[in-house]
Amino acid sequence: MTRGRTLKVVTIVATLVLWEGIVRLGFVNQIILAAPSDIVAAAAKDGGVFMRAFAVTIAEIVAAIIVAWVLGVVLGVIAGSSHMLAAATAPVLSSIFAIPLIIVYPLLMAWLGIGPLSRIVFGVLSGFFPIALNTIDGVRAIEHRFLVFARSIGASRPQIYARIIFPLALPSIVSGLRIGTGLVVIGVVVTEMLASLGGIGYVISYHRTLFDTGHVYFGIFLALLIAVALNAGLTRLNRRVEVWRTREQESLHG
C-alpha cells in the first residue's frame, strides 16, 4: 500500500471510530445521529426492503431521465432553431423553471394517483426545463456560417440537425443534462417521501416517523449513491464534449 492510500484508510477508520464513539458515549442523541453500527444493523435487518425500494427508485429515475432528456433535447432543438419560437418559449420556460414545482405535485397526485406514474411525471417536470433551456441556448449560439456551409454541401434538413446543429450544441446540452438529471433525482425522491408507498424516499420517510435513525441514514446513503453515480457518469460525458470546445477557444485566443 502506498503512503497516500494508508493515510486515506486511516482517516476513514478514525472517522468511523470517532463517530461511533460520540454516539455510544451519549454526546449526541441517537435519534439525531445514528452510529455506523446502527446503519449496518438496519441494512442487515431490512436488506430486502431496502433493495426492493432501491429498485423502485432506480426504475422511476431511469424512466424520468429518459423522458426528460428526450423531451428537453428534442423540444429544445426545435425551439432553438427558430428565432421566433425561441423568443416565444425561452422566457416562459425560464419563468416556470423559477417556480418551486413542488407546489403542483398535489395536482399531479389528483390526476395520476400516488403510484409511480405521478412521481415519474414530477421527475420529468423537474428536469425538463433546464435541459430544454440549455439546449435552446446551445442551438441559438451556433454561428450562421455553419448552416450556410451545410446547405452548400447539399445537406438535407435531418442531416443538418443530426450532423451539424446537434453536435455543435452538445456542450451546452450536456451542461443542461447535468443540472436536469440532478433535479430529476430530487423530484423523484422528494415525491416518494411526500406521498407514496414505495421507493427509497418512502422508506426514509416511514422510518423517520418511527425514529429508526439507522434506517433513515441507510436510506439516505442509497439515495446519495444514485446521485453520485449519475453525476460521475455525466461528468465524464461532459469532459468528453468539453475537450474540443476549450481547445478551440484556446487556439482562437493563443
Binding site: R145, F146, F149, I153, G154, P167, W244, E248
Partner: peptide
C-alpha cells in the same frame, strides 16, 4: 438551389467541424 456535385465552396472562415 445549391448544386454540391457541381459547385464547391470555400468561405472566408474555414468553418471546419471542431470535433
Amino acid at each position: 438551389a445549391p448544386m454540391p456535385d457541381k459547385i464547391g465552396m470555400v468561405f472566408q472562415d474555414p468553418t471546419l467541424l471542431p470535433w
